[in-house]
Design a protein around this nucleic acid. Sequence first.
RNA 1: GCCGGUGUGGCGGAAUUGGCAGACGCCCGGGACUUAAAAUCCCGUGAGGAUAAAACCUCGUACCGGUUCGAUCCCGGUCACCGGCACCA
Length: 808
Amino acid sequence: MTDIMKYNFTAIEKKWQKKWLEDKVYAAVNGSEKPKFYALIEFPYPSGQGLHVGHPRPYTALDIIARKRRMEGYNVLFPIGYDAFGLPTENYAIKNHMHPREVTETNIKRFTEQLQMLGYSFDWDRCVDTTDPEYYKWTQWIFLKMYEKGLAYKASMPVNWCTSCKCVLANEEVVNGVCERCGAEVVRKEKSQWMLKITEYAERLINDLDEVDYIERVKIQQRNWIGRSIGAEVSFSTTAGDTLLVFTTRPDTLFGVTYMVMAPEHALIEKWSDKLSNLDAVREYQEAAARKSDFERTELAKDKTGVRLEGVNAINPVTGNEIPIYISDYVLSTYGTGAIMAVPGHDTRDWEFAKQFGLPIIEVVKGGNIEQEAFTDCETGIMVNSGFLNGLTVEEAKKKITEWLTMKGLGHEKVNYKLRDWVFSRQRYWGEPIPLVYCEKCGWVPLPESELPLRLPDVKSYETTDNGESPLAQMSDWVNTVCPHCGGSARRETDTMPQWAGSSWYYLRYMDPHNKDRLVGEEAIKYWHQVDWYNGGMEHTTLHLLYSRFWHKFLYDIGVVPTKEPYMKRTSHGMILGEGGEKMSKSRGNVINPNDIVAEFGADTLRLYIMFIGDFEKAVPWSSTAVKGCKRFLDRVWNLAEAPLEGDGYSQANESEIHKAIKKVSEDIESMKFNTAIATLMSLVNTFYENKPTRGDIKALLLLLSPFAPHIADELWEIQGFEGYACVQPWPEYDESKTVDAEKEIAVQIGGKLKSTVIIPLDADDETVKQIACKDEKIERLLEGMEIVKTIVVKNKLINLIVKPKEK
RNA sequence: GCCGGUGUGGCGGAAUUGGCAGACGCCCGGGACUUAAAAUCCCGUGAGGAUAAAACCUCGUACCGGUUCGAUCCCGGUCACCGGCACCA
């Protein structure tokens, strides 16, 4: 045989990609009789750089799962789309004097080619694009519904302003004081912004985590981000007459309150201005605090600063003592009530402040040494110096004091969250226009539904401005309009929505992407319900994932969707790093382009390698030599399938290994242990090299291989003369009884140390095992002059003999 | 500081969660085929000792200690790295 057919992956992959697409092999069917399965990956942002080698990791993983489900008889929805609004496209367009629309179209085309090149089983007929007016019509519609229900409001407040993007950012988009996207400095800026009341859903966003199957670290991160604290709100009367309201998680320490602190921005300060004898010093401190960026405020955290409000004191409600009030920037205006009761004995920050200003420190919980540091333990301490709370534990005291406060009308139990409302406006062009107009007479007026979508004006110039206004503000033709309410002249809102808007509901559109009347048809949502398995990056845990859960819950409340949660299961992949273990980046020059790998080794090899590379959940460095190992494996598969033995059943020599492999691969895919699934397939092929496989053996191998390397599987399937596509055949089944061998090799230990191995019949009883073990040559020798004092047998695994020298 | 995670050969990583540590792959070494090379196939490959060669012995899962017949796995402590939050009262 000189003319051995080579594994020509380039031709094979093109051939099958074309066939799959033409035959719509991967089309999901709405309303099918089959059980449904909805697998989702985070749709890409179509950047100018094209597909990165990081993209295929989650995509291939869920493609494998979707393919397996399809073979198991499910009606699978595995869709793809593009999250195409956003800054990088806009910046690129400005720089190259193009329109973002044009840039987006080019990028989407490129991404589509690249994704198709990798052989993903997406249903391409359901592709969505968030920048398509037919799509963003519904993004706007949801926003209007939120406005209608009072969940969208405009408020003037200090916001995060990225100095480079010239745009506000959500709290979630600020990382270590800099912009998460561009890394530029973020400063505080007072601006009027559209806000979404995500805080109204804080409780449900935490509680409903119990009902979903997310990996634990995602749940933990979301819980921490929402940051629920249970405590009490307490009113302190003041010598000025007003009451000062505070939030505390430690009402039990009320007897230990020796002073109060207000945030420099607190509204009462203004009210008290004529009572303050040191108003100049107060004003100076307020101004200094306002000038600091968030970053500076945390940087200078070590030394506490502040100014006493001379002229106004507060009164401790339990002791009746007059206590001083300070302003300090260690108290945040945005959390709780913007003021605190200070308990220096039992709060680290209060302790530091008290030391700095020479304020009294009283011990009210015994157990620590408050001379040296604040005692903050809530578990072990006992109440002291606390009147009617003395002798109680912290837990008991909390309960008792809260009851007392409630009874006296001085306070009540209160839950607080770290989560803030979502800053929803962006001063940029390339985003969904906010469909509201401002009328002098009527105020903010929503557009009627019939006027949606409100399209972005098609203009040439949309440069950002330094004054903090959206580029849309300069387009007077578009801005000036009439009020839908009174018909008078009105101005459109010129800010646009953030990138996270379109992605907050896209999974619903996939269910019914061409519906003209609703964002998703009733039949479609009733059939598909929600996403069964969603995989995405950890970096979206407190952004997209949280936002879309919020939107979904809102849509549930207004009756658009029947489920409380959008995603039943959430998993997350690790990053792919450069060869040196560093993050892949253009500046490091260690970026791997999937196109190059596909050209050199083929898509099947790339898919296999990316899944074989390591634990799916962990970050892993790329290795260009290791890719070859996967190519070699496929070559071995190819050569093996050339001329199998006759016979459509399993060969006797391979049967047991095949059943074991089916079991192992099936289970490993479910638990996303793709690396060991592939190792199993490699071992099976190695076995086939020892025992020549039949056509039936090959068939099983091809079916197991198909989700991982679908092109070669279909090609060899065809070459072997099997009918149809391998990728939609029934998933092979295994017979449990055939996965176990009749004989087992077990370990023989003496005193816990491995000394030999013996072969025993499967499930042999302890006595039999012992007899066989003792007859082993090596063991026999070692047992000479010894007495067995104890025998431990682990069924089918090992026997451990505990011995001591025989007494004469 | 708080929360979470990880630590296993030269490298990526396995180990049915308390039972033969290092599966599978990469790298490397040897052999077969070849005029030669590549490709392919076969063999070896944790460290140290022992041996003509084996058999064999000792050590070994970041470090120290504990529980156990037996620990990569459980418990206590230490160190290192990664991720998230960070004056949230």
